[in-house]
């Protein structure tokens, strides 16, 4: 049964009036929560996971050692690494071919976590729309270029102490040890 107050509220549409007051307040407030996107770019938070890029050391050499741990970590199998020995330093390896298929990438960032030398990083590149899908298949060169753009501050290349260099030179002179096949 309608009580007196309830009846009065129904007659004067009190609930609708409340709603009208709310919308009017929002109109007068004049605050805008949307962005005029192509003209006004959003401010991305740190830790934004955009396109994956390769990084360099401060002397310009690439960090990647071609270990292919990123390939193993990738849940969508978008990374292909073909590792090879460096021609000048046969004991060190680099990625001869590094392909990251951005059309498959899910931007999970697992490859960045998996990398033992921090050679990979997630940039803030998010406008990946293109008319040509082939542009989204990133090679090491294009990833390095993107990395140069987004990460201008580079890490110092680690310098080995004299003791280690001596050990290394000694090993080099004696011939590097290598595992013999068939000997457990």
């Amino acid at each position: 049964m309608l009580t007196g107050k309830k009846l009065f509220q129904t007659v004067v549409f009190s609930e609708i009036l409340q709603g009208l007051r709310l919308t009017f307040k929002h109109m007068l407030r004049g605050k805008v929560i949307t962005q005029q996107y192509p003209r006004e770019k959003p401010k991305l938070p740190d830790g934004w996971r955009g396109a994956i890029v390769h990084l360099r050391y401060d002397d310009g050499t690439e960090k990647c050692v071609g270990c292919a741990l990123c390939e193993a970590a990738c849940p969508s199998h978008c990374i292909t690494v073909i590792s090879a020995e460096r021609p000048d330093l046969p004991q060190k390896r680099i990625a001869e071919t590094y392909i990251l298929d951005m059309t498959k990438c899910v931007f999970c960032g697992f490859c960045v976590q998996a990398c033992p030398v921090n050679a990979l990083a997630a940039s803030k590149e998010y406008e990946l729309a293109t008319g040509d899908k082939r542009k989204l298949v990133m090679t090491k060169e294009s990833m390095l270029t993107l990395g140069d753009r987004y990460f201008p501050v580079r890490e110092k290349r680690p310098v080995y102490s004299g003791e280690r260099i001596n050990l290394f030179e000694g090993l080099k002179a004696a011939g590097f040890p290598h595992a013999e096949k068939g000997h457990g």
Partner: peptide
């Protein structure tokens, strides 16, 4: 425009 103002948007710009 009025709708967008009430919904904290900009509307046609």
């Amino acid at each position: 425009k009025v709708l967008s103002d009430m919904q904290d948007r900009l509307g046609p710009m």
